[in-house]
């Protein structure tokens, strides 16, 4: 018997202005699994993630967390229910210091647990520990992505939503981030939803991949199958 999915979306439909960005998308995300969501620019990947996180209004369909309907729940409350979102560009607050950004992520946790959350983030990302008192604006692109992930993990989420963590990063840094996600997913027992333009890098660490095109799911399979399908690769994954 497979465990029921931690997070499930059913028939999710959302509009971006006058354009339908998602139509009837259904997916399931399980604990301990990295699920890559791929597709070309404008395929609806970011809208999908923002709808799951609560930043984008849903026109129809449902978001279910552990079977509970959270479709209408405000963003900040979803965070408390275990959904952490790293939006495109990281969503860090560049005016605050590195430590303050992480503390912000841990704020709704019990007071006694906050110092440990901060220490855990610095353990995971030693470069951040060195720059803890500096404004986040002074960080490099890779460090910002680390900070964004550290901030999200400080809330100790069950679901981690990541929007293009490789954007603007050097290939070597991208690979490090991807491997880190794999490790985190295995050790913290989270469900990771990884939206990526960089399909090859994302599939290398994923358990499953879904391909979006014009707001609809055109394929959902194990990474190996997606990579083996030449037509799919050329048409949607761009390599």
């Amino acid at each position: 018997m497979p465990e029921p999915a931690l997070l499930r979306i059913e028939g999710l439909t959302a509009d971006y202005g006058a354009v339908r960005a998602l139509s009837g998308v259904s997916m399931a995300f399980e604990k301990g699994r990295v699920h890559a969501v791929l597709g070309a620019n404008g395929a609806g990947k970011t809208t999908l993630l923002r709808a799951i996180g609560g930043l984008h209004p849903v026109a129809a369909g449902r978001v279910l967390l552990r079977g509970d309907d959270v479709t209408r729940m405000p963003v900040e409350q979803r965070v408390r229910h275990g959904i952490a979102h790293v939006p495109e560009g990281g969503g860090i607050i560049v005016e605050l210091t590195v430590a303050e950004n992480i503390r912000l992520g841990a704020l709704w946790r019990r007071r006694s647990e906050r110092p440990a959350a901060l220490a855990a983030a610095f353990d995971l990302f030693p470069p951040l520990a060195e720059r803890r008192a500096r404004p986040a604006a002074t960080l490099s692109g890779g460090e910002r992505q680390m900070l964004a992930i550290g901030r999200a993990l400080a809330a100790r989420p069950e679901v981690l939503l990541l929007d293009e963590p490789s954007l603007g990063l050097a290939p070597r840094v991208t690979r490090q981030i991807m491997l880190l996600l794999r490790r985190l997913c295995d050790s913290a027992d989270m469900a990771v939803v990884l939206v990526e333009q960089n399909a090859r890098g994302a599939l290398a660490v994923s358990d499953r991949g879904s391909v979006l095109a014009q707001g609809e799911v055109v394929a959902a399979a194990a990474p190996g199958e997606l990579l083996a399908d030449d037509r799919m690769r050329h048409a949607y994954l761009g390599f």
């Binding site: 900040e76 939006p87 969503g91 860090i92 950004n101 503390r103 912000l104 704020l107 809330a155």
Partner: peptide, 24 residues
């Protein structure tokens, strides 16, 4: 204070603050 941190976060980047769980 934690309240002050939330207030600064909300003032600087409302959306990023919401994503971090702040009631902006």
């Amino acid at each position: 204070t934690p309240l002050g941190l939330r207030m600064r976060a909300a003032a600087h980047r409302p959306e990023a603050a919401r994503v971090a769980g702040v009631r902006v």
